[in-house]
């Protein structure tokens, strides 16, 4: 589904990603871990097409298409979803209206007709249950005045409604208490199926107790320096990132 080859990217002239290679197949969950400043969020930004990130080398194929050639909205319509680390507030724009507009853009892209308000309401009620959110959220402006936990749940709600093929979760666990973390993880687990895939970016192993990954990759100084299964995350938990730093330096 996603094939990243030798990806280099820089921000304002500083090279952040230095040769990333990653293959993601349908049905898989990949966790990307790493210390602060290792390039985790840059990877998410490059995949979603955020401005200000320059890809200097390498290729990213998504379902056989050159992902980097697509505008951010085209990537989204093709089924790439980014759960933001810092969801943005949009004052005056009703959450329900925003979500319906987004869903209809995606449907239009796939040649489907717009969803009726009645059907949309049915759909969203069902999805709200999944993230244990109250219907009154729909009437509020997008993320405005939401608590940190509410914002993150809103990201998962959007993911549930838009049903992406590839979801990138950028530190969705940061700032969540254990209850909210469970709700978010639960939502993700319910959405997992054989035709979609997840890239879960996290600093801590904690989230991976609830979203059990098929693969764990450790990102350090812009490169994936270790890959393994879920035990790699546990190992990191026990030994910390210093273990990676030290072993990497000795290797160099």
């Amino acid at each position: 589904m996603l094939s990243i080859k030798n990806l280099y990217a820089s921000v304002e002239g500083h090279e952040i990603l230095k040769g990333i290679n990653l293959e993601v197949q349908a049905g898989q969950v990949h966790a990307i871990m790493g210390p602060n400043g290792s390039g985790k969020s840059t990877l998410a930004a490059v995949l979603s097409g955020r401005e200000g990130y320059d890809v200097t080398q390498g290729t990213v194929l998504y379902d056989g298409k050159d992902l980097l050639e697509l505008a951010p909205e085209e990537r989204a319509r093709e089924g790439l979803f980014l759960a933001f680390q810092y969801p943005v507030e949009i004052p005056g724009v009703n959450t329900s209206y925003f979500l319906r507009t987004a869903l209809n853009e995606i449907r239009k892209h796939h040649g489907k007709e717009s969803i009726s308000s009645v059907k949309f309401l049915q759909l969203i009620r069902e999805k709200l249950k999944m993230v244990e959110m109250d219907e009154k959220f729909l009437k509020r402006s997008v993320n405005e005045g939401f608590s940190g936990g509410e914002k993150k749940r809103n990201e998962v709600l959007q993911m549930a409604v838009l049903e992406p093929r590839l979801a990138v979760l950028d530190e969705t666990d940061s700032g969540l208490d254990i209850d909210a973390l469970k709700i978010v993880a639960n939502g993700v687990n319910m959405l997992r199926h054989e035709n979609n895939a997840f890239i879960v970016i996290t600093h801590y192993q904690r989230l991976l107790n609830y979203i059990v990954p098929d693969f764990v990759h450790v990102l350090y100084q812009g490169k994936i320096v270790r890959s393994g299964d879920k035990d790699l995350a546990l190992h990191l938990e026990d030994y910390g990132y210093d273990w990676i730093k030290e072993s990497n330096e000795t290797k160099d």
Partner: peptide, 30 residues
């Protein structure tokens, strides 16, 4: 008008023109 806001809407499949229009309409809602 924030680039962040526009990008957030872009990332949900909404074009930039529609995003600006949505943000402006939200601003004027009252």
């Amino acid at each position: 008008i924030g680039e962040d806001q526009i990008f957030y809407l872009n990332q949900r499949g909404i074009s930039t023109e529609d995003a600006v229009s949505m943000i402006v309409n939200g601003f004027c809602k009252q």
